[in-house]
Design a protein around this nucleic acid. Structure first.
Ligand SMILES: [Mn+2]
Ligand SMILES: [Mn+2]
Ligand SMILES: [Zn+2]
Ligand SMILES: [Zn+2]
Lengths: 142, 142
DNA sequence: ATATAATTGCGAATAGTTTGCAAGTAATTC
DNA sequence: GAATTACTTGCAAACTATTCGCAATTATAT
C-alpha cells in the first residue's frame, strides 16, 4: 500500500513545512483508520510534543488545502483521513457494540447512481457515508 | 404528506406520555427537516417550556425506542428526524455556503447495492449518507 | 544574517451534551 | 377519586470537543 510523503505533500500544498506538522501528518499517513485530534495528540512518539489546540488548527488547515477529508463524526468527535490518490472516497462501517471502524472499498461508478438526484440539487464535492451495525466478531461473541 | 400522532406513537413505544414529550415530539413531526436539541428548545410555542437537558434526554430516549434516527452531524451538532413509516431512510444534501439541508428521496433497492460489501462485514441497521456541495441558489448568486 | 509573515503554546472561552439530585407528575391500584 | 409508585423534569454543575487571543517562536525569503 503506497503512501504519501508528509514533507512533499505540505510543500505541494503551499503550506509551511514545520516539525510539528510533519509529525502529525506522519501519524495520519501511517494510520489505516480515520483519526481524531486527541488520538493524534496522544499518539506523538518520542520527544516532540504538539499542543492540542495546534493539532486542531492543523486538522482544519489540512482539510482546507485538501490534504485531509472529514471521514465521519462519532458522538461529537470528528474523524479525519487522507484525501490523497492513495485513499479514494469510500464508506465507513462502525460496529455499535465494539465501536470499531472499518473502511470499505472505494466507491465505484455504479455507486454514484445514488447521487444522481443530489447532483440535480447542486454540485457535490463531499460524500459522507457511514453504516452502523454489528460486526461479525461481536455477533459471534453474542 | 401523512404524519404520525405524537401521543399514539409514545404509547405504542411504551414510554410515558407527558405534556413535554408531546410538545417536543410534535415539533419534530411537524418539521420537514432534521432538527437539533437547541432549535427544539427554542421552538416551543406558547406557554409550555421544556428544559434543554430534558430535550436532550428525550432525543436519546426517542432514538433508543426507535421513534427517531440520527440524521447527521454538523459541526458537532446532532440532527434528528422521524424514523417512522412516513419517512423512509434517505440521504441528505448540505450546501456548504448557505448551510441549508435538503432531504433526498428515499433510498431505492438499487442504492443498496452500495451496501453489499458492508453486509459481509456485519449486519447493517443504520445508514447515514451526507452529501455536501453548493446548492443551485448559491451557485447562481455567485 | 535579517526581516517578515506564519506558526505555536498557553490559558481561557465556547458550544454541545450529560449528570446528580430533589421536586413534580403519569400511570396503577385500591 | 385519592394514595402509591416509578418515572420524568428542572436546575445547576460537570464534561467533552473545539476555538480563540495573544505573546513568543520559527520557517522562509531577501
Ligand atoms: Mn476510511
Ligand atoms: Mn431527512
Ligand atoms: Zn464489533
Ligand atoms: Zn446554498
Amino acid at each position: 500500500m503506497d503512501r504519501c510523503n508528509a514533507t512533499e505533500l505540505l510543500r505541494l500544498k503551499n503550506v509551511k513545512v514545520t516539525r510539528s506538522r510533519i509529525a502529525i501528518l506522519d501519524e495520519i499517513i501511517a494510520s489505516d483508520n480515520p483519526v481524531n485530534a486527541i488520538d493524534l495528540h496522544n499518539g506523538l512518539s518520542g520527544q516532540l510534543t504538539v499542543n492540542l489546540a495546534t493539532v486542531y488548527r492543523m486538522l482544519k488547515l489540512f482539510v482546507d488545502v485538501g490534504i485531509l477529508r472529514e471521514a465521519f463524526a462519532d458522538n461529537g468527535t470528528q474523524y479525519f483521513e487522507m484525501a490523497c490518490v492513495h485513499n479514494p472516497a469510500h464508506a465507513h462501517f462502525q460496529c455499535s457494540k465494539c465501536k470499531r471502524i472499518i473502511c470499505l472499498s472505494p466507491l465505484t461508478f455504479e455507486d454514484t447512481i445514488l447521487f444522481s438526484e443530489a447532483s440535480k440539487i447542486g454540485e457535490i464535492n463531499e460524500i459522507n457515508i457511514k453504516l452502523k451495525g454489528i460486526c461479525q466478531k461481536c455477533r459471534s461473541t453474542a
